[in-house]
């Protein structure tokens, strides 16, 4: 695998995770429990989709076949997506949505933080921009996880349930493969496994404050990073890509 092949894959992984998670939380727009939370989720979605434009823009540039960020977002099918599986998990309830967001944000902050020192300037610039937003998102998602975990009997039970359902999807964040090895050797990106201790420390602290119990299982669902997805991604893409599929080439 060449450096550029690996960088293309990596930029897709970063961009697709931001895009799919951003689209997922945009589904809350108009449905959140109170207007402030509705606005907050829409804002986080907007940041993530902004980050998508930068990562997929870079992917298209590195690939060199003239594909734009929009082409990559709207004209690929599920098996070409490289997002982490956790991003495509359905929203379920508000607490579940924020548990997913928290587990992701705690990872994003570590990954982006490391990427600010990337030997590839374009990666470092995108990471520095996205990191500021990710830190803000993590502040928000930590507060909600703590508030609902250490809340009523009902909210606590739902958050514990969300944690257990999502936990098997966290291991994929830290699973290294050939793309990661290639980029680590070039000092472009860290090995994902190296981010685990910092993520563990953050997650343990927040779960402790939230009075939630960290699951013991180390089982991890894998496949998102190589294009093997759950059935949920196809449904999401059907909605997200509908306009471009029905009216090819449509523009504003």
């Amino acid at each position: 695998m060449t450096r550029d092949e690996a960088l293309f894959e990596f930029a897709l992984r970063m961009g697709d995770t931001a895009l799919i998670l951003g689209h997922r939380i945009s589904e809350w727009c108009g449905h959140a429990p109170v207007i402030e939370e509705d606005i907050a989720l829409a804002n986080i979605a907007l940041d993530l989709i902004g980050q998508t434009q930068m990562w997929l823009g870079l992917a298209g540039e590195v690939e060199g076949r003239g594909r734009s960020a929009d082409d990559l977002a709207y004209l690929r099918d599920a098996w070409d997506f490289r997002n982490l599986l956790i991003a495509e998990r359905p929203n379920r309830d508000f607490g579940h949505t924020y548990m997913r967001q928290f587990l992701h944000d705690a990872y994003a902050v570590e990954m982006l933080g490391e990427l600010t020192g990337s030997a590839e300037e374009r990666v470092a610039a995108i990471a520095a921009k996205a990191l500021k937003e990710a830190q803000y998102h993590l502040e928000k998602s930590s507060e909600i996880v703590i508030g609902l975990g250490d809340g009523t009997e009902e909210s606590h039970a739902r958050m514990q349930d969300a944690l257990e359902r999502l936990w098997p999807y966290t291991g994929e964040m830290f699973a290294d493969d050939a793309v990661d090895e290639t980029l680590a050797a070039e000092s472009i990106a860290p090995k994902p496994s190296s981010l685990r201790p910092a993520w563990d420390a953050r997650v343990n602290a927040v779960l402790g404050e939230a009075t939630l119990t960290r699951p013991e299982s180390g089982f991890a669902h894998l496949g998102g990073k190589t294009g093997r997805h759950t059935e949920h991604l196809g449904h999401l893409l059907a909605e997200m890509q509908w306009l471009q599929r029905a009216y090819p080439g449509a523009t504003w």
């Binding site: 402030e36 939370e37 606005i39 907050a40 804002n43 986080i44 907007l46 940041d47 803000y136 502040e139 928000k140």
Partner: peptide
């Protein structure tokens, strides 16, 4: 603080 987020990405309430 009412909310960390506001009517535009740059604002809080």
């Amino acid at each position: 603080r009412v909310s960390q987020f506001g009517s535009t990405p740059c604002k809080a309430q």
